Simulated assay, not measured.
Amino acid sequence: MSGSTTTPGSAASLVGPYLGAQFTALLTADDRLREGDESVVHAGRVAARRARSVLRVYGPLFDTPAATHLDRELRWWAGTLSPVRDLQVLQDRLDALVAGLDEELVVGPVRTRIDVELGHDRLQHWAAVVAALTSERHRALVDHLERWSTEPPWTAKASRAESTLTPMVRRADRTVAERLRHAHRSDDVEDMHRARKAAKRARYAAEVVSSVESTGATKAARRYRRLQALLGEHQDSVVSAQLLRRLADVADQAPGESSFTFGLLHEAEQRRARETEVKAQRLARRLFT
């Protein structure tokens, strides 16, 4: 089915180039990671997520065993990169929170304590990335990416018209709506996080078809981006609050330190988490009811 990628108007003619772009981004990021460049961790993780979204939302276009295997390996690689990226985001967030306080509210070596705690964690997680880059598993993943780039394992459905993709995008829409409704009923943080992941997947699915369904698909991608931003802010606030609680406990036991500032920021992050959850639920109701 390799010829279906070049057949104008086929489903593969849209999905193939998008997927290939993600593979190129992954391989480019790999080269820079081997040089010690942590700045590309985010680009690599996003490319892996986009590729996995394509494999899942547009699964009927691909040989199932091959797609399942690649999805599993991309999940492993994204999971290896995630802790480093999460700490980068957390560092920037806490730096901004502290910078936003009046100086009299910064009691003790707050910035140093944040840098020490996060720096230690980041070194450990970066070491895991370096080790993974030289592993047999990662070398096999690179081989798969290069093979998929030249010869994707298409099924017969890949040669069908672009309109074949529409019900697949709609199915991703329904998944977002279902998970948001469930999260609203359960009021559970993990359910909110699962809804966020579904929103990302639907957003990337909409990006694939945006060139031919310019109005509808572009609007879908935009609405998911807004929802994803709110759910992401909620998740970041929750994670930040958890770390601030830990830092407060450490500061309480350390000579010359105080938990005051960490407690102040912890309360602010909890409040922000509640506010963004309400905003996300309101947006979800407008989008899906």
Rank of each mutant, 00 (worst) to 15 (best):
D86E: 15
L283G: 09
R122P: 00
A199W: 11
D187Q: 09
R160V: 04
V110H: 03
L61N: 08
E38C: 01
S186C: 07
G232C: 11
T112V: 03
L180Q: 10
R34N: 04
L14H: 06
A195D: 12
G20D: 13
R113S: 10
L165Y: 10
L227I: 04
L244V: 09
D102W: 01
R113F: 02
D31T: 13
V169A: 14
R222P: 01
G79Y: 04
L230N: 05
R45M: 08
A172T: 12
Q242M: 14
S210V: 14
E213N: 12
E267N: 08
A198H: 02
A67C: 04
D86H: 02
L94W: 13
S258N: 12
V15F: 11
A221S: 05
A205F: 09
T289H: 08
V106P: 02
D188Y: 05
Q22E: 13
D71P: 00
K279L: 15
A12F: 03
T276N: 07
A96C: 04
R194M: 06
G20A: 04
P255T: 11
A206D: 03
T261N: 05
A220N: 00
D30K: 03
T175E: 15
D236N: 13
V208A: 05
P8D: 00
L230R: 02
G79P: 06
R111I: 07
A131T: 15
A99Y: 07
G256Q: 10
W126F: 07
S149G: 09
V142L: 06
D173K: 06
D92W: 07
D249A: 15
K197G: 14
G119W: 09
A158E: 11
R34L: 00
R285T: 12
H125R: 03
F62P: 05
E104P: 02
L118H: 08
Q22K: 07
L87Q: 14
S13C: 00
L123A: 13
V116P: 03
E275L: 12
D92S: 09
Y204N: 12
R160G: 05
V41L: 01
R285W: 11
E277I: 02
L81H: 04
R56C: 04
G108W: 04
A177D: 13
A268Q: 15
R194Q: 10
V57D: 01
S240L: 03
A128Q: 00
